[in-house]
Each structure stands twice: as structure tokens, then as C-alpha cells.
Design a protein around this nucleic acid. Sequence first.
DNA 1: CATGAATGAGATTTCATTCAT
DNA 2: AATGAATGAAATCTCATTCAT
Lengths: 230, 230, 230, 230
Amino acid sequence: MNRSSTSPAVRLVPATPRGQRTRQRLLQAAETVFGEKGYEHASIADITRAAEVALGTFYVYFPDKQSIFVEVVDELGARLRRLIAEAVAGCQGRIEVEREGLRTFFQFVARHRNLYRIVRQAEFVDEACFRRYYDLFARGYVAGLERAMAEGEVRRMDPEALAYCLMGLSDFLGMRWVLWQDEGGGPEHVLDTAMDFIRHGMDARPAGADTRSKKGTGKVRAPRSRKTTR
Amino acid sequence: MNRSSTSPAVRLVPATPRGQRTRQRLLQAAETVFGEKGYEHASIADITRAAEVALGTFYVYFPDKQSIFVEVVDELGARLRRLIAEAVAGCQGRIEVEREGLRTFFQFVARHRNLYRIVRQAEFVDEACFRRYYDLFARGYVAGLERAMAEGEVRRMDPEALAYCLMGLSDFLGMRWVLWQDEGGGPEHVLDTAMDFIRHGMDARPAGADTRSKKGTGKVRAPRSRKTTR
Amino acid sequence: MNRSSTSPAVRLVPATPRGQRTRQRLLQAAETVFGEKGYEHASIADITRAAEVALGTFYVYFPDKQSIFVEVVDELGARLRRLIAEAVAGCQGRIEVEREGLRTFFQFVARHRNLYRIVRQAEFVDEACFRRYYDLFARGYVAGLERAMAEGEVRRMDPEALAYCLMGLSDFLGMRWVLWQDEGGGPEHVLDTAMDFIRHGMDARPAGADTRSKKGTGKVRAPRSRKTTR
Amino acid sequence: MNRSSTSPAVRLVPATPRGQRTRQRLLQAAETVFGEKGYEHASIADITRAAEVALGTFYVYFPDKQSIFVEVVDELGARLRRLIAEAVAGCQGRIEVEREGLRTFFQFVARHRNLYRIVRQAEFVDEACFRRYYDLFARGYVAGLERAMAEGEVRRMDPEALAYCLMGLSDFLGMRWVLWQDEGGGPEHVLDTAMDFIRHGMDARPAGADTRSKKGTGKVRAPRSRKTTR
DNA sequence: CATGAATGAGATTTCATTCAT
DNA sequence: AATGAATGAAATCTCATTCAT
């Protein structure tokens, strides 16, 4: 139970274009079905039905249910990371990066309401895939934070720990106010609150001297060229 | 799939002491088995085997698999909340409360390494039970934070949003440094980093002169540069 | 393919008499079905249908198709060996033993026309079980032959090799004249021929007193020109 | 199940040399694969993979799985019969023929260790093919034996029954000492024992003085007592 | 209370064969 | 001739739940 591959498995690419199309159809269908029913309750038959191919066709492209699931998760993660990287590309300052990243994440969740269900299932389907999902996010985060620390924009602290703080915080807010919503001021309000917390939490001039002297140091950094890999 | 009861079902308590014992045995076995195999892969037979009772006996105490699972989750949550409440009872100041709460949580996770697996499964088994788990935590949190805000110890902000920030952050740190550990300075170091982030994040005097004097520890240990860029 | 257990697996005996009955019904049905359709073409459903129990009931008593098959083979072998042992018990002299054994075997084959099909399938289902079948026969044979040799009734020769000669010969005659029959004088005639061959083949006095008298014929041919079409 | 053709089907030979090569490759691959996995577990895909051609190519040369199997069996039988006929061609006397035939058979089995598996599978795939295999052997045998009986070299007895005796005996010895081997003096020793049994079994002078002197090797090694009681 | 036999729906997986290219 | 994608029937096995004892 929970065989787990340390690295994303090599995926055979079908020889013909027709095959490629079918494979894509299956992946798309799988994302939908896994999101709706959850991994355990999603049957291969559900997937092929959604993809409008015969049951046996599934096994032409994937050896089993786990494989296609892992691929779905990996792709979902890659897509989200790419999206955030793009959204954050033009930002000025780490705070802006954080806000933009968080906003993009909330949007993604709103559009892919099954993201949580899928990623969290991964923990039980393929532990390595699950960890990989967060690990890859953390790497980008860490790189960006280290740069910000080097430039004096963010207080010096363990960047990976900080990254997991920010990821956990985003994750829970997205769950509570995008997925569960109902009441509560909605994403925008929560985003403001979160940013208030985050800004102070990582500010390079937490309190005291800087602040006070803020006047003098007024110039503060001039963080150019963000290019946060994230 | 995922019938979800809005409120925790009423649980019958067996009349005889022998019955009570059997019921407890089943609950205990269920926690272990669910933690090890996950809800879907855990069979009633696994549970009764672990509890050393006959298969049919299960249905004397629980109407179905879902029920015992929900009860396991609810009890786990209650136990953890109680533990934290006790640990935090004697604390001075919100920061100390946070630190003690986080430490207690880490300890609990270390001792109940299947906590995450069980709680997260709940999302797919009984959505209401899952939300209840976090909601009950959040309530306690909110109450505490509101008090701290009233006393001017914590900056005024949406207490529920702040609660979810703190819960998410704890959750991810526990996952990364208690469950997955391997490298990284370990819970203590992470605890310090997290507290640094939290303190400043919610400090009532974000750039207050006091701060400095208030916490001697304020300087925050110099985090060995991670170089996690990897 | 062809997992093979070195020794006959331990068989759990059902707790209740009702269970025992069901188990026997399954074994009986399995023998019939395997004999008729062959191992590969016999489905578990065929067996449960023949036994008049539900499909799932099969798995209460046997972990898989292979297990019940192995048990069928083992029991078939045991039954046949017991039968032969009994038939041979009162015989005088090894020749009589051989004849009686052969006759009993032919009878058994006539009554269990699926014996061959079942045993031979074993080679592909569980190699160990297959060998065990012949090995257990051989042991009994060897013991008997050694005794006969010690008593000067049978010529001294490797008893195991002789046992396999006799087993192979019986096997093929049974196949040809009991199973395939059609023409050919039928079992009795073949039995006589076989006994003639066997008697001389293992006679302790290959060139005994008789021969001497026969001396006249002694010179015999000088057969060149083989060209045995064979 | 077990459609059986009464006579070997007519086989189309491909027009082009390239086609012929492909067909041969398939036959060769089939022999290997059937031998390794058994008929039922060998898939057409296994065969085409081993032959390094595409799946569809199979059906250019064979109408179905059964057909190629039957052809493999028929060819294997023909090859073995031809080999034995050649080996036996120059022999003097029936005994020598038997010995040479047996030796050749053992050699063939040693080199084609899957012979047994393949032939025996035939019983379940195509009964006619299976019988044909033995029948063709028996015919050659009978012809040779009748000649030897006519020449007074072999005792008069039903030649077909004798043929099946000899075939069964060879079959079992080959199985036990060539395929299973492990202990036991090995083919040579067994060959001597078998020949001792056979010679006396069919000798025209059942107790002829000659015999004794005829074969120096007659002494037969003293077989270590088995002690296999049972 | 406790037991364990029985059920049958449902899920995954295999594979011979067809067919369009 | 050769290819390889597509099919769908069939088979094995699991397991929550029921029920008679």
C-alpha cells in the first residue's frame, strides 16, 4: 500500500499523434474524475468513460491507476508553479511578490476546486509524489527568499522554515476562504489580513531602531531585478 | 461517497463493563489500522483482528466503518485540544502561549505519527468531520486571540484569518520537520524560526521600541544559512 | 507464473461443521471443473456454481485458484496411492503386486477420467506439487522394490530408476488404452503384454535354469540392415 | 476450449523471402515463449516482442494463437523423430537401437528443456495435435519392433503396447533424470539401468544364457539404498 | 454479547483480435 | 508487408455487511 517512486517515472510517449491525443484525453479525464470522486472511489472505468475511450485503452497508456494519478498531480503542481512564477515576474519587492503569489494561488484554487482533494490524496497514493509537490514549491520559495534576505528586504531566518510557514498559511487560507468560504470577508479581505501578518512577520526592520530611524534610512533598498524563480 | 453528518453522532455507550472494554479495544485498534493502511485500505476485518475480537462483534458497537472512523478523528482532535489547553494554561503572554502550543503540537505529532494521515483521510470520508476538526481548533484560537487583542498584546486583525494562518503554519512545519524531518535543524530550531515569524507577524507594536526591551531573546539566533537553493 | 511451494501448504480447517461441509463441497466441485475445463479455463465462478455457493464464499476457504488446485491434486494422489496400497496388500510376490497395482491404476483412471488432465496441469500451476505427486509414488515403489530385491525376487538395479520405468510405462498405457482406447485389445490384453514385459524386465533370474534348456534356440539371428524406421 | 483439428492444417508459405524470414522468427520466438510461460500465459504480444516484429504482424502469418502453437509442436516432434532416426540408422541389433534412441532423446531434452512443457500443454490446447505427437512416434516404433520380432530378436508381443511401454519409460526417465536431475547417477547410469530392464523385458530368449555374457556392462552399479520407506 | 460463515456487487487487469494507416 | 492503437469480454479478488447460532 502506497508504493512510492522516488522520482517521477519516465513516461512513454505514444508513437502516433492519434495516440498522443488519446493519452491527453485520459489525463484530462483523470483530473476531473479524481477531483470529483477521490482516488479510491474513482474507477478506471469512470476515467475511460469520461475520456470516451474503451476500458482497455487505458492500459495502452498507463500501467495502472496509480501511474496516471501521479502524472496528474505532477502536472497540476507544475502548472500552478508556472502560473505563479509568471504572475510574480514583474513584481517590485518581496511583499508584492507574496501578495501576487497568494492571489494567484487563490485564483487557481477557485478555478480548480479539486486541487486540494487531488494533492491530499497523493499522500496516500504515492508518498514521494506528495512530498515532491511541496518540495518543488519550497525550492522556488527558498530561492526567492534567500535573494530577498541578501538584499536586506527580508529578515534573516531559516528560509526553508519560512517557506513552509508561508506555504502552510496559504494552504489553510485557501481551504478556509476559497473552498469553504460561506461567510468571512472573502478572499480579498483575507488576503489583506494575511499580508499584514506576513509583512510584519518577515520585515527586515521588525521593530525598533530602523523604524524609528526610518526617516534617516528612508532611502531603504532599491530592489531591482526580481526575477524570483519561485 | 462521503456521506457527511453535520454534527457528531450520538454514541451509545455499552451497558456492561465488558462491552465498554471491547468498544475501547475496537477504537484503539481502529486508530492504529487507519493510521497504517489508510481508511480505504483498512478493512473491518483488519480492525477486529487487531482488536482480537470476531468480525461480527464490530457491528455490535458501530453501525459501519465510517462511524468508527469519525469517532477516532473526533477523539484524536479532542485529545490534542485538551493537551494543548493544559500546556498553555499557565503561560504568560500570547507569545508564550503560541510557543507552548506549537511545542505541544509537535510533541503530539511525534508520538502519534499517524495523526496527519488520519485527519487528512477525513476529508474524503466525512467532510463535516474534517471541517469540524479544524473548526473546533479555530474557535479556541479565535477566543484566545481576541482576548490578546483586547489586551493590546496582539495587533487588531481578523482573528479567524489569523487563526488559520497560525494553524496552517503549524501544520506544515509539523509535517516537514516532525514527520519528514531528515535534515533541517529539527523541531527546536524550527520552533524558534516560526516564533520569530509569528511574534513579529502579530506583534501589537509592529515597529515598537518596546519590543527590543520586552524580549531579551529578540535577537533571534543567526540561522545557519541554508543554501537550500538546491 | 508458476509460484511453487516446496511443501504442501498448511490448510486451515473451518471452525464449524457447516464450514467444513462447504469446504468439502468446493473441493469436490473443483475436481470436477478442473477435470472438465482444465485449470486455465476453469474459473472460480465455475467452481462456486458447481458447489452451489456464492462467489465470495470461495475466498473464505481458499486464498486463490492455485491453492484449491494444489489441494485437489494432493488429495487425488493420496487417494490413488491408498487404493493401490490396499489392493496390493494381500498379494503374493512382486509380480502379483505389479499386476494388481497396474489393474487398480487402470480402474482408477477409468473412473476418474480427468486424473491425467488434472495431474498434468499441475506441471504448469505448481511445479512442486507436480513433482510431489510422482515423488510420493516413487517412494512407495522404491520401498517395495528394495524389499523384493532383498528377497531375491527382483534383479538388483537402481530401484528409483526402475520405479520411474514402471510408472512411466503404466502412465502411457493408461493414457493409450484407458483414456484413448478405441481399438486395441483393451485394458486386459494390454495388462498381459505389460506384465510379460515387466516380469522379464525385472526377473531375478534373467537367464535362469529355464534358459539353459532353451539353449537349443540360443544361436539366434545375425540381424544386419537395421533401417529402423522407428 | 480445445478446438482440435484432426489433421495438421495446411500451412501457407509466404511468397517473399522476407516474409519467410519473419514467419520463421515468429515460430522460433513462439517456441521459446511457450516453453517459458506456458501456452495460456504466453501472449501474442510476448511472441511478437521476442520476434521483434509488431503485434499486428503476427496475424499476417497465423490466424490465431492456437495455430502457431500446433505448428511449434508438430515441428518439434518431427525434428526429434528425424534426429532419432538418424542416430539409430547405423545400429546393430534392436538393443543397440533402443540405447541409441534413448540417448538421443535424453540429449534432445537436455538441449530443449522446454520440450516437455510444450508437448504437455498440447493436451489442453489441441488434443489431436497431442495424440498425433505420440502416435507418430508409436508408428515408427511399431514398425521397428515388428521387424525385430519377425527376425526373432524381440519376443513376440503386441508391438503397439510394447511401443507405449518404451515411450512411457523413456518419457519418465527423461523427466526425472534430465529435467529434474539433482541427485541420482545422471543420464548415463539411468540409461544403463533402463537398458538392463528393457533388454530383459523384450529379449526373445527371456532367460537366455547369452544375455549374461553379451553385455559386459550388465553388472549394473549397486544402487545406494534409498531408505525412502513410505 | 459474541461469533464466523455467507453473500454478491464492484474494481482492476489481461489479452486475443480487429482495423485503419 | 508491417504497424500499433483500440476494443471489450472475461477473470480474479476484496470486503462491507447480514444473519443464524
